[in-house]
Amino acid sequence: MKKMQNVMIKGTKDGLTLHLDDSCSYDELKKELDEKLSASYRAQDDRPLITVKVKVGNRYLDEEQREEIKSLIRQKKNLVVDSIETNVITIQEAEQMKNKSEIVTVAKIIRSGQVLQVEGDLLLIGDVNPGGTVIAGGNIFIMGALRGIAHAGCYGNNEAVIAASSMNPAQLRISQFINRAPDQRVEEENREMECAYIDDNDQINVDRLQVLMHLRPNLSRFEGGR
């Protein structure tokens, strides 16, 4: 009977894709991976670097195992690991993903010296007073006046936005970008709701709220309550 292959190597225009079987033991998998790569991709100084994507299906790899796989592949000198993809995540990782995607609603006034931070999107019903700070991993929506500091996309999400009924901040931050408010800005009671976002020039721009439906069409997820 022909032995079943635990490691399949496929060449693509972007490099190599390694399909690793998820039913054999981890030790078997490592052994066969080492053998196949050693036979096919011996290190050569004049050989260009080859990008490798690793797909492990329904196998869970902890950090130590991921590093072992990466190290094994890197030993071939000319191979560079681009990513390791798995269909399996831990409960903790699933909870972290859920926290970063959910909308947290808070009804309060953020006063001077107070900091409110959430993992995902923030919907604040209330004002952010001067000296107050709101921080979110996702978007920030303020049903009130923003006079303090707002930092959206704090984990590096450049697509995050900040919206407020009255936009008169001390400072706006989106991802790693910072925009200080003008020294003097007249606050109008009937000012139209505004939003801040990162434009094509990597600058924080403030505009009418209506532009978001064109700039960030994914925000329409709120309509269905998802």
Rank of each mutant, 00 (worst) to 15 (best):
M4S: 03
N6Y: 09
N6M: 13
M8A: 14
I9M: 08
G11L: 09
G11F: 15
D14V: 11
G15I: 15
G15P: 07
G15F: 04
L18F: 00
D21A: 06
S25C: 10
D27G: 00
L29F: 14
K36Q: 15
L37V: 13
A39F: 06
D45M: 14
P48C: 13
I50P: 02
V54T: 10
K55H: 07
V56Q: 02
N58T: 10
Y60N: 01
D62S: 08
E64Q: 06
Q65E: 08
Q65Y: 06
R66Q: 01
E67G: 01
E68W: 00
S71W: 03
L72M: 14
L72S: 13
I73R: 05
R74M: 09
R74C: 13
K77W: 03
L79Q: 10
V80G: 05
V81H: 03
D82I: 02
E85L: 07
E85Q: 04
T86Q: 00
N87T: 12
V88H: 00
T90Q: 03
E93Q: 05
E95C: 02
M97G: 03
V106K: 06
I109T: 07
R111K: 13
S112K: 12
S112Q: 12
Q114L: 06
G120L: 08
D121R: 10
L122I: 11
L124T: 06
P130Y: 08
V134I: 14
N139W: 08
N139D: 07
N139V: 15
I140T: 15
A145V: 14
G148M: 04
G148A: 15
H151R: 07
A152R: 04
A152T: 05
G153F: 00
E159W: 07
A160L: 10
V161N: 00
N168M: 09
L172S: 02
L172H: 02
S175W: 01
F177K: 02
R180A: 09
R180K: 11
V186E: 04
E187C: 05
E187K: 12
E188W: 05
R191T: 14
E192K: 01
M193I: 12
E194Q: 10
C195W: 00
Y197T: 08
Y197S: 08
D199K: 05
D199Y: 01
D200W: 01
Q203F: 00
N205Y: 00
V206G: 08
D207T: 09
V211Y: 07
M213Y: 01
R216N: 11
N218S: 15
S220Y: 01
F222V: 15
F222N: 07
R226L: 06
R226I: 10
